[in-house]
Amino acid sequence: MSEAHDDGRVLLEIKGLTTAFSLAEGDFNAVDNVSFSVKEGRTLSLVGESGSGKSMTALSVMGLVPSPGKVVAGEVLLDGRNLLDMSAREMRKIRGAEISMIFQQPTSALNPTYRVGTQIREVFKLHRDWTRQVETEKVIAALRAVGMPDPEARLRAYPHELSGGMAQRVMIAMALACEPRILIADEPTTALDVTIQSQILELIRELQSSSDTSVILITHDLGVVAEMADEVAVMYAGEIVETTDVETLFDEPLHPYTKGLMGSVPVLGDPRPRLEAIPGTVPNLTELSVGCRFASRCQARIEAGLTVCQTHHPELVEVRPGHAVRCWLYSGQEVAE
């Protein structure tokens, strides 16, 4: 199934993206040498826990890294144009028109003092040259497309009058209003109840297939990944540790962290007497060791008797076509002492 799509055209290519922060507690790279590509009409999922750098990767692509953070290296190529070289003015034209983003808290991402219709209209004013009449029609069409019941009336609603699920529909309507080629969805359903999550995920899926939009889906939830992704990049402590297509990832995860994540999540309908917990906690980015960033929590390393993990940083190595992993267990290369 995955091969059939492999010839899909690469729309967005990210190469060696590195975003650095300099804080009182120390300097660190929130995103460290991250590379991946997004194909036309496909969904790439960035999976990780807090501090993995998945959200910061998205903000770096959008050119929205909060101060004092800064993109210090890498390229973000959209159709061969490097977004990182663009001026603030050029980026504003890209955002909303070619790449859009939706966030975890839809209610706080909307301006509470403006009506919903006005906020969607705002997007058209920025990117389209339409009459007010056409704008209104398009706003209603956008709300209808995201399954908003009674869109003509909802135009006049204020964000606080909407439930979380409805607010996320409005956010999606705004994000897709100008038919962007890429939608970045940062934990779009984490704040929503499970029945609403199901509706929103299906909505994204339908809108994507009807418009051939590419989606970068950021989540910590492996269920959402299984449900939505075509390709997956697992992130840990700022870097990608494993990347492959979604079926391979669930069938044959290689990185001990990916395996650990899968073992530590209870699966509905498959109760296990005991979960395989990953010991320890997510590392502090200012205090990373020179070796593998997962080494201190890694059981597989101890079982295999590897010592190189603590002294040398592993590279992301393609162990078979389309499946890369950052782990000494699979690198095959011995380090000369």
């Binding site: 399954g147 499970v194 999550q197 199901s198 509706q199 995920l201 299906e202 909505l203 339908e206 939830d221 269920g223 959402v224 299984a226 449900e227 992704a229 979604v246 079926e247 669930f250 699966v267 509905l268 309908g269 498959d270």
Partner: peptide, 14 residues
């Protein structure tokens, strides 16, 4: 509840 494996995906009501 989302599928536990990509092969178990099923259409849902949006």
């Amino acid at each position: 509840v989302p599928a536990s494996h990509p092969r178990n995906r099923r259409p849902r009501a949006p």
